[in-house]
Design a protein around this nucleic acid. Structure first.
Lengths: 123, 123
DNA sequence: CAAACCTTGACACGATCGTGTTAGGGTTAT
DNA sequence: ATAACCCTAACACGATCGTGTCAAGGTTTG
């Protein structure tokens, strides 16, 4: 069998087994199961897990946010509602001071980086 | 003056003053300010606050999620990355993409990347 | 069969979200 | 001028996110 179990998949993707289960519950990567219920990660799932990691790291996004993007993609009503609301906002560009929001995001990012840093220093 | 202050705006929109400030910080509704720094909510902002409430209640969405949708809309690179990841998920591996489908996806991706590029050039 | 691995469920813990409240200090309006 | 209102910053607090770990029990495999 060329399918890996959770621990093996974890070893080759950089996720922990715990996170692999969490990611499945979040509806992002759901491997098929063996007759006994074991998760079986094939090449497709492994690739998705690696690209998911890339996506989160490079764009400072959370799993829940990707899950929300997925929900928007699948729920046309939701997508339309959110899109409409945001579009109305965009029609008033003079009332959109992006500076504050940017600084807010920057501070959040700085906090995340600081946390990652101290994490590394411990290791 | 037909602009309301935070407490007045809160009274007519159903939000608390605290949440009005929080919503501004989240980049969702940013009213102009008086010379002294008071928030001044006009009809446009009031309407946006009411529709925002509608949106959250009807679709069980959080403020942070709407903020993320906004971020995706404004950051073409992010949008392209998330979109690409989710699209790959939808495609079944055994359902080998026909030339037609593949070319369609490729063109979409190219458009998204081009948008990201021009976004960067502006900055 | 038995060791090694998997499953779900739970407790734990720091970080962020959504929200209220309070403190110290300016602004507006009467 | 002074009461009433606003501003930001901060503490607090339950809920959820992201993550680890442990327990009790089923599966795979040599």
């Amino acid at each position: 069998m060329d399918a890996l179990t959770v621990n093996e998949a974890a070893a080759t993707t950089g996720w922990s087994p715990r996170m692999l289960r969490y990611i499945e519950r979040a509806g992002l990567v759901s491997p098929p199961r063996s007759d006994g219920g074991y998760r079986l990660y094939g090449p497709a799932e492994l690739q998705r897990l690696r690209t998911l990691r890339e996506l989160l790291e490079r764009h400072d996004v959370g799993l829940a946010e990707v899950g929300f993007a997925r929900r928007m993609r699948e729920d046309a009503g939701l997508r339309a509602a959110v899109d409409e609301w945001l579009t109305a906002q965009a029609r008033r560009p003079e009332e959109v001071p992006t500076g504050e929001w940017l600084r807010f995001e920057q501070r959040k990012h700085e906090r995340l980086l600081a946390a990652a840093q101290s994490q590394l220093e411990v290791a």
